[in-house]
């Protein structure tokens, strides 16, 4: 999916960060990110790479859409493709690599 998923940087070691996505910590590579990131920053993850550092003033608004999608995915009727693709990104199972 081309939406990407935002997460909070927990640690940084060179080009490799550990990033928290709604309680799930995953490794994300940083070499493609548009700006240097520090612990506490939010990044937009696409198939394991941060493609954008989300400016602090935009974090809350960005997360709101995803919160809503995750709620829909949790209902789990499988009808909601957008929510399911988002869940798939978090679970690292999804996608056609768009």
């Amino acid at each position: 999916m081309c939406l990407g998923v935002p997460g909070k940087v927990v640690s940084v070691d060179g080009f490799i960060a550990q990033v928290d996505f709604w309680g799930v910590t995953r490794q994300v590579r940083l070499e493609l990110c548009d700006a240097d990131v520090e612990v506490g920053d939010y990044v937009l993850n696409h198939v394991g790479y941060a493609i954008r550092r989300i400016p602090p003033e935009e974090v809350e608004e960005t997360l709101a859409l995803y919160d809503e999608l995750l709620e829909a995915a949790a209902k789990g009727d499988g009808v909601d493709l957008l929510a399911a693709d988002m869940r798939g990104e978090l679970d690292a199972t999804g996608g056609g690599g768009s």
Binding site: C2, F15, R29, E31, L32, H46, V47, G48, Y49, I51, G96, G97, S98
Partner: peptide, 17 residues
């Protein structure tokens, strides 16, 4: 490797690494 340029950049990064 499928996907548009958005995903191709990640393939590129993996090769550069």
């Amino acid at each position: 490797a499928t996907g548009f340029e958005t995903t191709a950049v990640t393939t590129a990064a993996a090769l550069l690494a």
